[in-house]
Write a protein that binds this DNA or RNA. Structure first.
Length: 843
DNA sequence: GCAAGGTC
C-alpha cells in the first residue's frame, strides 16, 4: 500500500481527486478523512500534529524558577491524537510513504514530524514531493519526480520552535511571577508579540510627546466662465514649495494681499498624463488590508476567507505569493464568470482585451498561489452579506489584476494675484482601465478647467484657515500587519492572531488599538532587561540562523545553545530587579483598573471580580472600607479616559461583542437608580391577583399562587432597567428593558397580558413603540435565536433562516439535531458542516 | 496557565 500525507484535509482530498482521476472515495477513520483508490491512501494532517513542550516536572509555575526552563529538555508530544493514531495505523500497512505537505519551511518541518511518526512503526521508504499549487499539472509533475525530505530545512524550523518556547516561557513566567499574576491574567512575552506591542507603544509615546504647532493655510476660489475651482496659496521656502504658513503675521499679510484684488493671472499650465497600474494579486497581507478598508477586522476577514476557501469558492487564503502560477489560465477563469450575475458583464469586457496579462507583485514564493477565485461561483443567497462582500472583493481583485492600466490627466495651474502665488492641481480620469472592475481604490477626480497662460481668472472668495499639526496616527490593524510583514514579524498565518493575542492579554484595546498602562510597563521592563525579545532583531537574527541551518552551515544544537546562553545573560540582569519590576507591573495593572476615588475613604476604587465571576467596582481599602458600586452583568469592563466631573470617576465601557456599550460613571448610574421610584404598570403574571394556575402555567411548572404581586419599571444600581415584580426577591419574574431612552407608559393595554404598551423616547424623531413588555420579550427571544445561529462560524444569514424553517430555531435545537436528517432537509447544508457546528457548540 | 507556528 502506498500512503500519501498532506498538510491539511482539503489538500488530501484534491490530490486524491487528481491522482485517482476522480475515482477516490472518502472514509472516516478515528474521525479523520482517508481518501482511497486502488492501493493508495491519502490522509491530511492538521498542520502540526505534535507540539514542543517541557517535561511534566516543569509544569508548576510556582515550583520552578523560570531560569531553570532555559536548560530544561524540550520534548515533542502528539497534540492531535486522532490524526497521529490514524497516520500510524495506515503507516503500519504501507510499503512506501510520500510526504506532500506545503512547499515552505514549516511544511518541511510538518513533513519531518510525520516522517518520525511513521518511523516509529515501520521502516518503509519515505519520500517527499513539492508543488506550490494543487493543479493537475503541478501535482502530476511533482509525483513523477519525488525527492527526499530536507532535514536541514526542517531543523531550521525546529530551532525556531525551541528558541520561541524557551524565551517565551521563561520570560512570561518571570514577569507573571514577579507581578503575582498567575491565573488567567498572566503577563506574556514573545519574539513576535512583544516587538508588535512595542510598535504600538512607541507610536503612543510619540503621540503623548507630540507638541502641536499652529499654522495657517489660505485658499482662493477662482472662476472661469462660471466654472469655479479651488486654489491654494503657496510660497517659496528655500527652493521648496510650501503651503503651510507658520507665522500668523505672514499669513495675515498674504491673506490681505489676496483679498485686495479680484482677479488672478495664470502664469503656468502644465499637463501630464500618468499611468495608474492595476493592483498586484492578493497575498494575505494585501487581502487583509483591502478588507480592512471595507471595515473588516483582520481576524474577521481571515475567518470569512477560510470559510470561502473551505467551501471551494476561493484559493487558500494564507499565502505570501503575489505572482500567479503558470498553470493559472486567466482567460479560462474569466470565462467562468461570463453570465454570472453582476460579474458577467465585467468578465466579458475583460475578455475583449487584445491580450490578457496579469500583474505580478514583488513576492514570488512556493507556498501557495496568490488568493484568487476558483471559478466555482456561489449563489448569492448561500452567503451572508459579509461573505458575499469579501467574495466579491476577491473576484474583483482578480479582475483588476488582468485589466488594463488606467490613465489620468493631471493639470497643474499656477496663478499670481496681489503679488502672491496660487496653485491648483486637477486630476481627470481619461481611461478608467481597471477602475471599471475594481471600485475599491479611489478614482475620484478633481476638476480644474482648461486655462491658458496669461488668462485672467476672477477671485470669488478668499479663505484663511487656522490649523494645527497633528500627532502621528495610531496603527490600524491592517497597517500594523503590513508593518509586521515589513519587519519580518510573524507569518502570513499568524500575524492577525498575534494582534488578537494582544487584545486577549489586556495589552491593547479599541480600534485602532491603544496600549494599556500594563502594556507600557511590560515594554519598558523588556526594553530595560531583555531588549532582544522586544526588538525585531531577535527575528532577524533567528532568520539568519535558520538560513544557515538550512544551508548546512550551522547546526540546530549550536544555534539553540547560543540562544540559551544569551537568555541566561538576560536572567543574570533580571535577577536583582525582580521586585522592582513586579511592583511597577502591579502599579500599572492597578492603573488600568482604577475608576476613581472612593467617596467614603478616599482610596482608589477598582474594577474587581466577585467569586461568582461578576464584575463590580470595589474600594482598594477593603476590608476596612467595604464601599462598592455595581456594574452591568454583560461584558467585560474597560476603564475609559472619559471622566465624570461630579464624581471624579472614569467612565466604564462594557465590552461584549456586538452588545458593547458605554455604562458611564458607575456612581452616576447608582445614584440615578437610588433617586428613581418604581413605576407600577400591572399585575405580575406569576403571583399577581387573578393568576389562574392551571391555564397560565405549562405542565411541570410550580403551582402559582396569587400574592398580589405587581409588575413595575425598575432602575437598578447597575444601570440596567427592567420590568420586575414588586415582591422581589420572593418572586423573581422579570422582563428586560432597553438600557437607554425615556420610557413612556401609554394608555393602550395589551389584552392578552393586561399590561400597558410602552414607548421608548416618545419625543424623539424616531420613537420606538416597544409595546407590551411580555409580547416584546417573546419576539426578542425568537429573534436572538436566529442571531445566535448566525454567530456560529459558517452559518450565513440565509442558511440560518433556512435552518429555522426546518425547525432548527436555536443553538440547543442545533446541538440535538441529526446531521444527516438536516443535510437532506436543508439545501446547501452538509452533514459534515452540521457536525462541525455541533463540535463548535460543544467547545 | 508560558511562544509561535501550523490547522478548523
Amino acid at each position: 500500500m502506498r500512503l500519501i500525507i498532506t498538510e491539511k484535509d482539503n489538500a488530501a482530498r484534491r490530490i486524491a481527486e487528481i491522482l485517482s482521476e476522480g475515482s477516490a472515495s472518502a472514509q472516516r477513520r478515528n474521525g479523520v478523512n482517508v481518501y482511497r483508490w486502488g492501493d493508495t491512501r491519502v490522509v491530511g494532517l492538521s498542520g502540526h500534529v505534535v507540539g514542543v513542550d517541557f517535561p511534566a516536572e516543569y509544569s508548576d509555575w510556582r515550583d520552578v524558577e523560570p531560569v531553570e526552563l532555559i536548560d530544561a529538555d524540550v520534548t515533542k508530544e502528539p497534540t492531535q491524537e486522532n490524526i497521529v493514531t490514524t497516520l500510524q495505523q495506515l503507516a503500519e500497512k504501507a510499503d512506501e510513504a510520500t510526504i506532500a505537505t506545503d512547499y515552505d519551511r514549516e511544511g518541511e518541518l510538518i513533513g519531518k514530524e510525520a516522517y518520525e511518526l511513521i518511523r516509529e512503526v515501520t521502516d518503509a521508504p519515505v519520500d517527499r514531493v513539492r508543488f506550490s499549487s494543487i493543479t493537475e499539472r503541478e501535482v502530476r509533475e511533482a509525483f513523477a519526480n519525488p525527492d527526499d525530505i530536507d532535514f536541514d530545512l526542517a531543523a531550521a524550523g525546529e530551532a525556531r520552535q525551541i528558541i520561541d518556547l524557551v524565551w517565551g516561557a521563561a520570560l512570561t513566567r518571570f514577569l507573571s511571577l514577579s507581578a503575582r499574576q498567575l491565573g488567567d491574567d498572566f503577563i506574556s512575552v514573545g519574539r513576535v508579540q512583544s516587538p508588535t506591542l512595542k510598535l504600538i507603544v512607541d507610536r503612543e509615546r510619540e503621540i503623548q510627546a507630540f507638541d502641536p504647532e499652529d499654522y495657517w493655510e489660505i485658499f482662493a476660489d477662482l472662476q472661469k466662465n462660471g466654472s469655479g475651482f479651488e486654489a491654494q496659496y503657496f510660497y517659496d521656502d528655500d527652493g521648496k514649495e510650501a503651503e503651510r504658513v507658520w507665522d500668523e503675521g505672514d499669513a495675515e499679510a498674504a491673506y490681505a494681499d489676496l483679498r485686495s484684488v479680484d482677479a488672478a493671472t495664470v502664469t503656468s499650465v502644465r499637463r501630464r498624463t500618468r499611468t495608474d497600474s492595476p493592483p498586484t494579486p492578493f497575498n494575505t497581507t494585501a487581502f487583509i488590508s483591502a478588507a480592512g478598508s471595507l471595515g473588516y477586522s483582520a481576524q474577521r476577514a481571515m475567518s470569512i476567507a477560510e470559510e470561502l476557501y473551505t467551501a471551494g469558492y476561493m484559493t487558500y487564503p494564507r499565502t505570501d505569493n503575489t505572482v500567479y502560477p503558470e498553470d493559472l489560465d486567466e482567460e479560462e477563469l474569466l470565462d467562468e464568470f461570463v453570465g454570472a450575475g453582476s460579474f458577467g458583464e465585467d468578465a466579458e469586457s475583460l475578455l475583449e482585451q487584445d491580450e490578457i496579462t496579469a500583474t505580478e507583485g514583488d513576492e514570488e514564493t512556493t507556498d501557495h498561489p496568490p488568493i484568487h477565485p476558483t471559478g466555482e461561483i456561489p449563489p448569492k443567497v448561500d452567503l451572508s452579506d459579509d461573505e458575499w462582500e469579501i467574495y466579491e472583493l476577491v473576484v474583483r481583485r482578480f479582475f483588476a489584476t488582468v485589466a488594463e492600466a488606467a490613465t489620468w490627466e493631471h493639470l497643474r495651474v499656477v496663478a499670481e494675484a496681489g503679488g502672491r502665488s496660487l496653485k491648483a492641481n486637477g486630476k481627470r480620469l481619461v481611461e478608467a482601465g481597471y477602475h471599471e472592475v475594481y471600485p475599491y481604490s479611489s478614482a475620484s477626480e478633481n476638476h480644474v478647467p482648461d486655462v491658458e497662460e496669461g488668462e485672467e481668472l476672477s477671485i470669488t472668495e478668499v479663505r484663511m484657515e487656522d490649523k494645527q499639526t497633528q500627532p502621528p496616527r495610531r496603527y490600524g490593524q491592517s497597517r500594523l500587519i503590513q508593518t509586521m510583514e515589513d519587519r519580518g514579524l510573524g507569518t502570513k498565518s499568524t500575524r492577525h492572531n498575534s494582534i488578537e493575542k494582544l487584545y486577549d492579554r489586556g495589552y491593547i484595546e479599541g480600534d485602532p488599538p491603544r496600549p494599556t498602562t500594563l502594556a507600557m510597563a511590560v515594554v519598558e521592563a523588556a526594553e530595560e532587561f531583555a531588549d532582544h525579545v522586544v526588538s525585531d532583531e531577535m527575528t532577524a537574527q533567528l532568520e539568519a540562523d535558520m538560513t544557515a541551518i538550512a544551508n548546512g552551515e550551522e547546526t540546530l544544537d549550536t544555534v539553540a545553545d547560543e540562544s540559551r546562553e544569551m537568555l541566561k545573560r538576560v536572567f543574570d540582569e533580571l535577577r536583582d530587579s525582580r521586585e522592582e519590576i513586579g511592583e511597577h507591573l502591579q502599579e500599572s495593572l492597578k492603573a488600568d483598573k482604577t475608576v476613581g476615588p472612593c467617596p467614603e475613604c478616599g482610596e482608589d476604587m477598582l474594577i474587581r471580580r466577585s467569586r461568582q465571576g461578576s464584575y463590580f467596582v470595589g474600594c482598594d481599602g477593603f476590608p476596612d472600607c467595604r464601599n462598592t458600586l455595581p456594574l452591568p452583568s454583560t461584558g467585560e469592563p474597560l476603564v475609559l479616559d472619559d471622566h465624570c466631573e461630579d464624581h471624579d470617576m472614569h467612565h466604564v465601557k462594557m465590552l461584549a461583542g456586538r452588545d458593547t456599550f458605554v455604562h458611564g460613571c458607575p456612581r452616576c448610574e447608582a445614584e440615578k437608580a437610588d433617586a428613581s421610584e418604581d413605576e407600577v404598570i400591572g399585575p405580575c403574571p406569576e403571583c399577581g391577583d387573578g393568576v389562574a394556575p392551571e391555564e397560565q402555567r405549562g405542565e411541570g411548572g410550580e403551582a402559582a399562587e396569587a400574592h398580589g404581586g405587581e409588575l413595575a419599571i425598575k432602575h437598578l444600581r447597575s444601570g440596567s432597567r427592567l420590568v420586575g415584580c414588586t415582591r422581589y426577591p420572593d418572586c423573581d419574574y422579570s422582563l428586560p428593558l432597553p438600557r437607554n431612552g425615556d420610557i413612556e407608559v401609554t394608555d393602550e393595554v395589551c389584552e392578552e397580558h393586561d399590561l400597558p404598551e410602552l414607548v421608548v423616547d416618545p419625543d424623539s424623531d424616531d420613537p420606538w413603540e416597544l409595546g407590551c413588555p411580555i409580547c416584546n420579550f417573546e419576539e426578542y427571544q425568537a429573534r436572538t435565536a436566529v442571531e445566535d445561529l448566525e454567530d456560529l462560524n459558517g452559518i450565513g444569514s440565509a442558511t440560518a433562516e433556512k435552518l429555522e424553517d426546518a425547525g432548527v430555531d436555536s443553538l440547543d435545537a442545533l446541538r440535538d439535531v441529526d446531521p444527516d436528517v438536516i443535510a437532506t432537509e436543508v439545501q446547501g447544508v452538509s452533514a459534515t458542516q452540521v457536525r462541525e457546528w455541533q463540535g463548535e457548540l460543544e467547545a
